[in-house]
Design a binder for these strands. Structure first.
Length: 273
DNA sequence: CTTCGTTCCTGGAAGC
DNA sequence: TGCTTCCAGGAACGAA
């Protein structure tokens, strides 16, 4: 499940392969993944366009061709963007093929086919999911004061707030469980019941686990690979995610597995209150 | 406004 | 061993 650190690692590794390259040909094997415009127009618009920049916002990747042409990509659960030599063998689960100048091919692969692509021409559509994103972890906007306003009057679990992309951008199930463990806060704790001190700790913990995920080139729990097809290493540094039934790294107590905010959740009942 | 359940999808694990 | 069932979850959507 690529989250902010994984998307950032994809951006870093993919960028040198595609910037200043021109799209020569596009081959769509699963038209369903092209959400806009109609798949039959998608290739026609892109062919002949050159990549200027590769950006990230939350879990979105944005390939900028020019100011009026942007390809917005979301990898969802199992999407992958991988660059390869054009004569290399086709990777598994290939759904869209972009042939670029310089004999490079950009592959969009996806096992579960939840990934999406929107090609935005002259702002012809708005993407609420992108435009309504909350602040980035690590930014000055993402502060305890900000989070205090968000959780006010929210009776639901704090985990649900952190998973909400409009509250804070880029977190998914892995880094939310990790941040809550880092902060010593129970995932199911009602959001509005958190003290100022806990919110401050939570902001610092989100920033810390995201920074660590980026440093470790992402978490490969199942399928994630970066733009070169390389796995991350952060899975070796997780406090709780995927460790249900195993001992807590802080106190040794057996970690609890449950469901919070509709998601599989792992926490330490001793260290998190 | 919030909150919760449903939907999409496939591979791998669990269960019988 | 081989079949069936369940589970993983990001985000959009509808309902309460």
């Amino acid at each position: 499940m690529p989250e902010l650190p994984e998307i950032e690692q994809v951006r870093k590794t993919l960028k040198p392969h595609i910037v200043n390259k021109m799209v020569k040909h596009v081959d769509i094997r699963l038209p369903r993944m092209i959400k806009h415009p109609a798949p039959e127009n998608f290739a026609d618009i892109l062919v002949g366009q050159s990549v200027r920049e590769l950006k990230r916002r939350g879990k979105y990747l944005i390939i900028e061709f020019n100011t009026n042409l942007r390809l917005v990509i979301h990898l969802r659960m199992t999407g992958a963007l991988v660059a390869a030599d054009s004569d290399a063998a086709e990777p598994p689960y290939a759904k869209v093929r972009f042939d670029l100048t310089g004999d490079k091919t950009l592959w969009f692969c996806d096992i579960r086919t939840f990934g999406t692509m929107h090609l935005i021409v002259n702002d012809d559509i708005s993407l609420p999911g992108l435009e309504k994103l909350g602040p980035e972890p690590g930014s000055s906007e993402f502060s305890a004061e900000y989070l205090e306003k968000i959780v006010k009057n929210r009776t639901g679990a704090i985990k649900g707030v952190l998973l909400n992309q409009e509250a804070v951008a880029g977190l998914g199930n892995i880094y939310v469980d990790e941040a809550l463990a880092q902060a010593g806060i129970l995932p199911q704790k009602p959001a509005r019941s958190l003290s100022r001190k806990e919110l401050k700790e939570l902001v610092a913990s989100v920033n810390k686990v995201i920074r660590q995920g980026i440093k470790n080139r992402g978490t490969t729990f199942r399928n994630y690979v970066d733009g070169n097809g390389t796995q991350g290493t952060n899975q070796h540094h997780l406090l709780v995610y995927g460790r249900k039934g195993q001992p807590c790294k802080k106190c040794g107590r057996e970690l609890i597995g449950t469901k919070v905010a509709g998601r599989g959740t792992t926490y330490c009942a001793n260290c998190q209150r």
